[in-house]
């Protein structure tokens, strides 16, 4: 009994250490795992894949900041690799100031890998107000007068002929906050923009309802979603090797197993303690 009770009172530093081991060991001893690809990921992949190459661009919105980069950056990279390998043009933008540098880095890296040229194969507009992105539905040129590097809209060859959201076949918002809900409400309802999403795992359950109603064409949920997209990109031959998120999946699995064990141990210990001391006034809510 004492042992069981002790299980629920493991020092938190021991827990940190165990978690660190569960994460680090599978990262160093790497082995390839295949995993189930969720339908929401597949839907988003297909929505991107259906965009005709060399025509109207996909819009990728980098609404995330450095704190949640590990979850969303691999999504951005996987989507960009998919687009560039297939010849789909990409317009990058962010409505969160902190995302400006992250978006720039992700786009420049993927473009360099595929030898894509700015202005012709991709554009980056950097940080714009959310209000400007609403106005994009009325007049794209006025909403985004200059790109991130100060070049006027009209001087970017691939932006010629882009009048508003009607010329953008798909917008993917990579978000770590409720800003995605604003995209669904303002751009989705007002301008019938076809929306896809990549969200942190914390937010993932909040947006499944929009998949069911078709308000989102697809969704990537957390690092697992990014890994699933990477797998699809490799399976279809758009990239030779998977990216960072896939390599993290072993560590995720190991840490989840550890946490499940800890939760079971904690509960066993809790109930053991309750039985040992039946008159405990404090109960959980």
């Amino acid at each position: 009994m004492k042992f069981l009770i002790a299980l629920s009172k493991i020092d938190r530093r021991v827990v940190y250490l165990l978690l660190a081991l569960a994460v680090v060991v599978p990262m160093i001893v790497s082995f390839n795992v295949r995993f189930h690809v969720d339908r929401s990921t597949r839907d988003l992949f297909e929505a991107v894949d259906r965009i005709p190459p060399g025509g109207q661009p996909l819009m990728l919105v980098f609404d995330y900041d450095p704190q949640i980069m590990p979850e969303l950056d691999p999504m951005a990279t996987a989507i960009l690799r998919h687009c560039f390998a297939r010849g789909i043009r990409v317009v990058g933008v962010t409505t969160g100031a902190q995302g400006a540098a992250l978006g720039e880095r992700a786009m420049a890296r993927a473009a360099a890998e595929h030898g894509k040229r700015i202005g012709e194969d991709y554009c980056y507009f950097g940080y714009k107000l959310f209000l400007s992105m609403i106005y994009f539905g009325e007049n794209a040129r006025r909403a985004l007068p200059v790109d991130h590097y100060g070049r006027p809209f009209d001087s970017l060859p691939m932006m010629r002929g882009i009048r508003n959201y009607d010329d953008i076949p798909l917008v993917i918002d990579l978000a770590g906050s409720s800003i995605l809900n604003s995209w669904i409400v303002y751009m989705g309802a007002r301008y019938h923009v076809r929306l896809g999403a990549g969200v942190t795992a914390v937010m993932a359950p909040d947006f499944y309802q929009f998949l069911q109603t078709g308000q989102l064409a697809g969704q990537l949920s957390g690092m697992k979603g990014a890994a699933e997209y990477e797998q699809l990109v490799v399976e279809r031959g758009y990239a030779p090797a998977k990216g960072l998120a896939s390599r993290a999946m072993n560590a995720i699995s190991a840490s989840h197993l550890l946490l499940i064990a800890l939760i079971v141990m904690g509960n066993v210990g809790y109930f053991a303690a309750r039985r040992a001391k039946p008159k405990n006034p404090q109960g959980g809510a």
């Binding site: 914390v202 937010m203 909040d206 404090q282 109960g283 959980g284 809510a285």
Partner: peptide
């Protein structure tokens, strides 16, 4: 909503 699960597990009410 995202923080409610934590309060529910760690608080009495």
């Amino acid at each position: 909503i995202t923080q409610l699960p934590f309060f529910i597990t760690a608080c009495d009410y």
